[in-house]
């Protein structure tokens, strides 16, 4: 539903990430059916960000945006997004930018979250989105998530860090391990 935030939680091994992968169409369910329109959601796994590590930040963001929308992202929009996530340093966003392989875990995560905003898909499927982020980046994520929900977006989030749900109306889905 537009504006809805679902917190998918449960003990380790309960199948939270598996459920999210099924929702993203990456795994087939053993029973039942899942209908997903890949134009309308964006998936972010827990331990990876889905980037070409030998390329720079801007090249990766351009690629994913163009692939999803068929349109090029404007330079202003790109700079704004990178600045929002404090990734507007010349060595990150410039013409001679460092490849992502040189980025820290937290910086790669910031870039993956910036990609969510740039692509503007209505549903976010996020597995531990704030892992590896510092306090400042977590605060940016919370404000970005709030704005996304206010604009009619929705999100399904797996996170052991409950700070990101504070102040947001959240539906909780508990998975019980068998």
């Amino acid at each position: 539903m537009p504006g809805e935030l679902i917190h998918l939680r449960g003990p380790n091994g309960a199948g939270k990430s598996t459920l999210l992968r099924i929702c993203a169409g990456l795994l087939d369910p053993q029973r039942g059916e899942v209908h997903c329109d890949s134009h309308r959601f964006e998936y972010l796994p827990a331990e990876a960000n889905g980037f070409h590590l030998k390329l720079g930040a801007a090249e990766n963001l351009h690629f994913w945006h163009e692939l999803r929308s068929g349109k090029k992202i404007s330079a202003d929009s790109l700079q704004k997004s990178l600045a929002e996530w404090k990734l507007d340093h010349p060595l990150i966003a410039g013409n001679f930018a460092l490849p992502l392989a040189k980025f820290s875990t937290g910086m790669k995560r910031r870039l993956a979250l910036a990609r969510l905003v740039v692509n503007g898909t209505p549903l976010w499927l996020l597995d531990e989105p704030v892992s590896g982020l510092d306090e400042d980046a977590v605060a940016t994520f919370i404000s970005t998530l709030r704005q996304h929900l206010e604009n009619g977006g929705a999100a399904v989030i797996i996170s052991h860090d409950t700070r990101i749900f504070s102040g947001l109306t959240t539906r909780i889905l508990d998975l019980i391990s068998c």
Binding site: A24, G50, L100
Partner: peptide, 17 residues
């Protein structure tokens, strides 16, 4: 290999491509 490194291939599979 370049797509496998950071699971970019998974995101390609999940994307409308």
């Amino acid at each position: 290999d370049p797509e496998h490194q950071d699971r970019a291939f998974d995101l390609l599979r999940a994307a409308p491509v």
